[in-house]
Design a protein around this nucleic acid. Structure first.
Length: 428
DNA sequence: GCGATCAGTT
DNA sequence: CACAACTGATCGC
């Protein structure tokens, strides 16, 4: 097996410590309740939700990482065999509750793993994140950026969640006597629901398991499992389809709202018509306020009962572009590699990267100024030994670095659902 | 009965 | 159609 140090959202053996960005299923595939491979670092919120997903997990293996502080852990360097210190900092990813990015710094250089994230230009939370990153990177060059490349293609352009939320509200308001069902996952889109609840001054129905999660997140009054209390219900996305809506409509007039990033590709002028979607235009007449966004997007539906709204927890292309330009990393890799449509971020963002030479020049400059300091606010002990145990289950993505050699390369490109496996050095 | 993988769904 | 996120069937032990 390969010798390794750290894995992020990846749960195969060979690492000394493991980091989790957030609790969505495609990031915990491979985690099991009998997890014994090492300490697991995550956010406080993720830790709080953890027992729900992984009943029985040995919570003593969980290490909470506070946002915005440098932490450290000492690990065995696979290259030298001796002890080496890795510093890391978590930053709010503004994806789903508990989602964080991780910035690492060690003998391998400096690496940022975004996990899934959305940083809108108008978002205050994103602005905080930018400031935090800027301060953390002050004198450092970012050698590697692992990027949420879900929508890493210029055809993907959609409005901020704030704007999309107003569209949802507009749709609801134009159906004052309808029941409303909104498709959501087990985690995420809470802010949309909170917004609706606040503006319309109404509770929102959720299914019992979801109510438990809402309570853990600290929302105690807003959500209910009693149908009689509200006409607005958030339902599991997998139970949401045209047939369901038609059945519901035999009982009461009901519309469905599907918040989703995907179909909102901008109709590109350069004639890639594989992205031309046809929308029923009846809707846009009923919600005039959301008729157009960014010039070419319209709220649409693919069914007379279902409305799609471009509400996404992943950054759209222009946001990714801004993000990369802001960081000017030396190298970029995507964290999502679904076999059919993996887009190499360097193809689109290579021109925004800093070259190795520029980086060395910068480094010399900084050096001559003699500034170098890392403030360690919270030091963590290395992996605890022995006692081990419990739980978890599921898995996915990627190990970031394995050795002191930070010239990594793709070793294996599996046809897994997602994820290349990256190893920095030959296994033995 | 468990995890791992595949297939299918919105 | 794209996609993320999820469920459920099936295989192997």
């Amino acid at each position: 097996m390969e010798s390794g140090m750290i894995s992020v959202d990846r749960w195969s053996r060979g690492s000394q410590v493991y980091f989790l960005t957030h609790l969505h299923a495609d990031h915990v595939r491979g985690l099991t309740p009998n997890w014994t491979r090492g300490p697991l670092y995550c956010s406080r919120i993720t830790a709080k939700l953890f027992p729900i997903k992984f009943s029985g997990f040995d919570l003593s293996l969980i290490r909470i990482v506070e946002i915005g502080h440098w932490h450290s852990v000492s690990l065995l360097s696979p290259s030298s065999g001796s002890s080496t210190t890795v510093y890391f900092m978590a930053i709010d990813a503004h994806h789903c509750p508990g989602a964080m990015m991780y910035l690492f710094r060690g003998e391998f250089g400096c690496t940022l793993y975004t996990g899934d994230f959305r940083w809108e230009s108008t978002s205050e939370r994103a602005q905080n994140g930018r400031t935090m990153l800027l301060n953390a990177l002050k004198d450092l060059q970012l050698d590697m950026l692992y990027l949420d490349n879900t929508y890493c293609n210029p055809t993907y352009s959609f409005p901020s969640r704030e704007v999309a939320a107003r569209q949802v509200l507009s749709i609801i308001s134009s159906h004052p006597n309808h029941d409303i069902v909104i498709a959501v996952d087990t985690l995420g889109k809470e802010n949309l629901l909170l917004y609706i609840s606040r503006v319309l001054k109404t509770k929102i129905w959720v299914w019992p398991e979801r109510l438990q999660i809402m309570h853990l997140l600290g929302f105690h009054e807003i959500f209910t499992t009693k149908t009689s209390l509200t006409r607005i219900r958030a339902v599991p996305r997998y139970s949401f389809n045209i047939e369901t809506l038609e059945e519901l409509n035999t009982i009461r007039p009901t519309i469905g709202i599907m918040p989703s990033g995907l179909p909102w590709a901008q109709k590109s002028a350069r004639g890639k018509d594989n992205f031309s979607f046809t929308w029923h235009t009846n809707i846009t007449t009923s919600i005039s306020t959301s008729k157009t966004i960014g010039g070419s997007l319209t709220a649409g539906s693919y069914d007379k009962y279902i409305y799609r709204v471009p509400y996404s927890d992943h950054s759209c292309f222009p946001e990714l572009e801004t993000f990369v330009e802001f960081l000017k990393p030396i190298n970029i890799k995507g964290i999502v590699s679904s076999s059919t449509s993996y887009v190499e971020p360097l193809y689109h963002f290579g021109h925004l990267c800093r070259t190795q030479q520029e980086s060395e020049f910068l480094f010399q400059k900084l050096r001559s100024k003699g500034c170098e300091k890392v403030e360690v606010i919270h030091a963590k002990s290395p992996f605890g030994d022995t006692s081990t145990v419990p739980l978890g289950r599921k898995r996915r993505i990627r190990r970031i670095f394995s050795t002191g050699n930070h010239v990594s390369r793709v070793r294996l490109l599996r046809r897994e659902r997602q994820g290349v496996k990256i190893v920095d050095r030959d296994p033995d």
